[in-house]
Amino acid sequence: MPEIAELKEIAGKIRIDVIRMLAEAGSGHPGGSLSAADLVTALLFAVMRHNPKRHDWPHRDRFILSKGHAIPVWYAALAEAGYFPREDLLTLRKTGSPLQGHPDRNRMPCLEACTGSLGQGLSVALGMALASKMGGSPFRVYCLMGDGETQEGQVWEAAMASPKFKADTLCAILDYNKAQIDGYVKDVMPLEPIKDKWVSFGWHVIPINGHDFEQILGALKEAAETKNQPTLILADTVKGKGVSFMENVVDWHGKAPNAEEAAKALAELGAN
């Protein structure tokens, strides 16, 4: 397993790639990509069992990006892991590119599901987790959701069903960055007390700082050890994390940085 210093370095590279991709594309979602960079890095580079040379390996762990708009961060991670050449990242959102604006597993088969309509990923992840428990292939399933996303009713249907089916190979991760599009989550549609809600639905809930690798890795390990119950990692994060002028600014949810803003962001991220 890589050292935490190494993971930090990878997450840094991924953040840089996210900014470069969005600046080149001229559109996309920086806020929720940057808030999830550390979570995604820990998953792909320290926890998940997967093989970049064989994306269809049946025993691979699954990752569902339910908040599909944050796909640039996953593309950057996949490229870093060797799923496809780094240069391809700059084709994001261009006509004909497999790097669609939201995940499309028809055009990029290493993606586990098509997402981009919020609220559906946890149900699909639960289905995969149920399959993994039916024997033969004991893989784990990770599902990353946005906090705003959990306003969708279907999320709570899946939240209710997962404990019923004792889906302990399922680990949901909530990117609790406190912002969505029309404003801050607390103003748009309050979710608190989030932890209590998930606990009362029957989940094992682990609140962490979603930018602290020690805590992220600890929680993922605890999730794997938790039996007869699904786990929700409630990851306290900062939307736009790593770029000072994007941090906690609602407007950076869904717009690309212009050349000047990208240069400033890249400098802050230590790109050379």
Partner: peptide, 8 residues
């Protein structure tokens, strides 16, 4: 709508 793609 363009760049956002099919899901939107």
């Amino acid at each position: 709508i363009g760049e956002d793609g099919n899901s939107q």
